[in-house]
Design a protein around this nucleic acid. Structure first.
Lengths: 354, 354
DNA sequence: TAGATTTATCGAAGCGTTTCGATAAAACTT
DNA sequence: AAGTTTTATCGAAACGCTTCGATAAATCTA
């Protein structure tokens, strides 16, 4: 029973023989290193192609003392969240990893992280050259990565000067609220959850800034938040009920993300409100569900794939040590910030009431 | 500038020295192989622990001629789909892989697959020992995997006797429709898309079987499908409009999946229908959104993580070659079928009209 | 108790690369 | 034309593990 693909894998030795050069020369030619005459290089490349040679990753890794892998970590509950924000980020890292000839190993960690116990296998085995962390994870984990001496880039999260790629949450939120202001809204509420998350905090800051910019004082009673719950549809419903019961009711709401906004939308419609007639709603993220909803949701688009892509590129630079010098005059700003874009759809309209 | 974690990694050589045995004995002890006296084994294990030794994957791979990786492939459009069905499946494979000390490399392929061009890197580099394919992918890809001589297990998809782990779609669909029949519904429609997918076809079969079982002839005009589109919320809306316009209107609908059902639900509510009063709706998959919706969706639960877990286990067996013998009297049934569970929520109720 | 078998340990080869000198030819210097 | 530098090639070591004999001690067999 032949299961192991009959043909034995070609090695660099075969290529060297075929091209009539030494193994070392073959290696040099294949990797574009050192001095190799154009003629020889061509011969080696041709031989490799003819034989269908592909270097065995393990051998290369062993010789180079690198793994060629990078770890991608996020919290299990974030990953499994209904709207696949992180899925897109992950896809983005994959995309860039492909170019750099790296493999991405995904691992999830629990919300409450215990160093020895929950340590991802790739870290225990030191099977990565760098780590990407998406979203908020337990600082204990980040400590562990640092202790392992691995380069680390955070995505959509910031923490004491760690290199990070983040969304310009503040500017995005601000533009969203300014959009509502332009539509003549005056009583604009803020709906949020999980507000210790720095990224979400920034969105709240953006909300405040926009109001201040328009000379409107921030009314604390219009800021409805659940400190600790997840910012999901459920939270949107719960907070939505509270919002709808208010008197006078706000005429517009800026939600900390789409999941929440969609929950609110659902609740509003079920309570007989007209959206956007009675209530304008803006979300954040531009997840798939935002476009599908009825009415479709005005929101702030985040380029999720690009987020992952940039993070991967940043990490790769860190791994090559290229940044050691330029780092110096980057001090204090280890961040790459990604702009957002306001997407106006049907859930917002001009306020015509009194 | 020290970036490479100062402490040099311990090797098996260090462990051997510490335990005062040869390298080979250390290896044997560490891997529970061959003959090693209990005393020696203990000494080696203790030494390893003391030094914090972890075998370097690359070295092991090279020596064993294995990669320790398995590839997980699905279509990009499936992966990015709004409801993270496959995300859960993937998580399940990760879970099992962890026990088996394997790494899962994820790759997506386009809908239309061109062998040379779109070949995932892990296949080109032969950096996996087996492949898992989730959902429907281009047969050209499957051919390529077979040609590479790699063991292959399909998930939620079947194709000419390839080992597969599938959901019991037919039974699940049948139970869903039987639930509607028990609620006295007579005019029960079927909503679907992408019907060449064998799994979805089975759901249609289940629908037919349930009706036949109740002595109700299948009315073709009640089977609304889009042959080629994706079974997503959009499709649910489009088909939903058609359904609502029918006269007489069906009193209940079984949707091929939740995404579609939620789209239909949205459209129904927007057209002023009462769900379930005017129309009962059942979905399939039990995605997160089904629980959140208002009214919450009656649906057929699929154990997604388990799907991935079982597939991984199956693949691992294939890789060990354990199945070669028992395969013989398994002939014709290379499949593992996973049962489903009907989850009754608020979107279905007894029919009281005429 | 002599011979066979099982248990325990080890040295060395092998896995497939990269990379470090060494060597020599070719190409520049003055 | 002699010396220097650059270019080209190669052999061999190194990476860190597993595994195949070989060897010897311990245990069983008759």
């Amino acid at each position: 029973m032949v299961r192991q693909s009959g043909i034995k894998r070609r090695t660099i030795k075969d290529v060297a023989a075929e091209a009539e050069v030494s193994i070392s020369t073959a290696s040099l030619a294949l990797n574009d290193k050192g001095y190799v005459s154009p003629d020889t290089r061509a011969r080696v490349l041709a031989a490799a192609k003819r034989l269908g040679y592909v270097a065995r990753p393990a051998a290369r890794q062993l010789a180079q003392q690198k793994t060629g892998n990078i770890g991608f970590v996020l919290r299990a509950d974030h990953f499994a969240r209904s709207e696949p924000f992180y899925t897109h980020v992950f896809l983005g890292t994959e995309f860039e990893a492909d170019r750099k000839d790296l493999y991405v190993l995904l691992a999830t960690v629990p919300q409450e992280y215990t160093p020895g116990e929950h340590t991802p296998r790739f870290l225990r085995q030191r099977n990565v050259d760098g780590v990407l962390v998406a979203g908020k994870v337990d600082p204990a984990f980040l400590k562990e990565v640092e202790a392992a001496g691995l380069p680390l880039v955070l995505i959509d999260f910031e923490m004491n000067g760690q290199p990070a790629v983040v969304v310009d949450n503040q500017a995005g939120a601000r533009s969203a609220v300014e959009h509502l202001l332009e539509l003549r809204h005056q009583r604009i509420a803020f709906l949020g959850a999980d507000m210790e998350h720095p990224g979400l905090q920034s969105r709240l800051d953006g909300y405040r800034l926009a109001l201040n910019g328009a000379g409107i004082p921030v009314d604390p009673s219009l800021v409805l938040t659940q400190e600790y719950g997840n910012p999901d549809g459920e939270a949107g419903k719960v907070l939505g009920e509270r919002l709808i019961a208010m008197d006078p009711r706000p005429t517009a709401v800026f939600c900390v993300n789409d999941a929440l906004a969609l929950g609110l939308l659902d609740t509003a419609l079920n309570n007989g409100l007209d959206v956007p007639g009675d209530l304008s709603i803006v979300g954040f993220d531009d997840v798939a569900g935002a476009r599908i909803a009825t009415p479709s949701l005005t929101t702030v688009r985040v380029y999720k794939e690009q987020l992952g892509e940039l993070a991967m590129r940043y990490l790769a630079e860190l791994m090559e040590g290229t940044l050691d010098e330029s780092d110096r005059y980057r001090r204090g700003s280890h961040d790459i910030t990604l702009p957002t874009e306001l997407v106006v759809r049907q859930s917002t309209s001009k306020w015509v009431g009194q």
